[in-house]
Simulated assay, not measured.
Amino acid sequence: MQHQGKLGRISAHALLAAAALIMAFPFYWMATSALKTNDEIWRFPPTLWPQSPLWSNFADAWNAAPFARYMLNSIVVAGVIVVLQIINSGMMAYALTHMAFRLKGALTSLILVGYMIPVTAVYLPGYIVLSRLGLLDSYGGLILSNCVSIFSIFLIRQAFLQVSHELVEAGQIDGASHFRILWTILFPLARSSFAVLALITFIEQYNNYFWPMLITKNPDLQLVSAGLRSFFVEGGAYGLKWPLIMAASAFTIVPLLALFLLTQKTIMQSVNLSAGASKG
């Protein structure tokens, strides 16, 4: 029986390792293609490593377009949106879970219904609102139009539902304000959910393409996705400079990898705690 259990664990680890390799291979292929020549990329059968790695391709790609500006724009816009969504979703989720007011159920239902509305359905009204506010083609328009998310509210609401209401009542008895209860009691208990929210939101906004392209025309405001598209098509790289395209794609995902490394410990602690609670 013990032997079967050990064999099962080995099989599970082998399957997980195989799945991890399959998911990581596209990133490996992208990074190694950045070190090849154009002919090596199209060679058949393909090679897993270039004969003579061309590390200069990364520098050439970096200098071929203003990627520093593209990445800075994306990091700043995505970072501000993450902070605003954490604040907004935290306050809204607190109101929906630990405050009593009229039409609370109706408001919760309305939010859940809003979660089912396709994002593209609000593009036109959102564009009109930003136009009337004079926020088209600006950082303010990019940030304001994404500072509230139904998904974020729903995610944090589910996390706050797991917190005992008695803790909130104890804080109220001690004279703590709603804001103090939210940020000193609920936020630490749900920090793993906030970490997941930050990671998902940053990745989504960093890679956002269609909406920023719709409301911004100034090249100086372009985000990474739009910048890569410009380099791929308008810069004459289409079909001609695949190593540089792969190099640009590789170094533009570095901020996402860095954010994942910063948040993975908190996320994994949450998973372990949830698993322990389930077993208990």
Rank of each mutant, 00 (worst) to 15 (best):
A24R: 05
F25A: 14
P26T: 12
F27V: 10
F27E: 08
Y28H: 10
W29R: 10
T32L: 08
S33Q: 02
L35I: 02
L35V: 03
D39S: 09
E40Y: 00
R43I: 11
F44S: 11
P45L: 06
T47L: 10
T47W: 03
L48C: 06
P50S: 00
P50C: 02
Q51T: 13
Q51P: 00
L54T: 03
L54R: 14
W55N: 04
S56E: 13
N57C: 11
F58W: 08
A59E: 15
D60I: 10
W62G: 10
W62F: 15
W62N: 05
A64T: 08
A64I: 02
A64H: 04
F67W: 07
R69W: 02
R69G: 13
L72H: 09
L72M: 07
N73E: 03
S74A: 11
S74M: 08
S74C: 11
V76H: 07
A78Q: 06
G79D: 08
V80T: 06
V80L: 10
V80D: 07
I81E: 11
V82G: 14
V83S: 05
Q85G: 08
I86R: 09
I86Y: 04
I87A: 15
G90S: 15
G90F: 14
M91A: 14
M91P: 15
M92R: 05
A100Q: 15
L107E: 01
L110E: 00
I111S: 05
Y115V: 12
Y115P: 07
I117Y: 01
P118V: 11
T120C: 01
T120S: 07
L124S: 10
P125C: 00
G126V: 03
Y127P: 02
I128R: 07
V129W: 03
S131H: 13
L133C: 11
G134I: 08
G134W: 10
L135A: 06
Y139L: 10
G141S: 05
N146Q: 15
S149P: 05
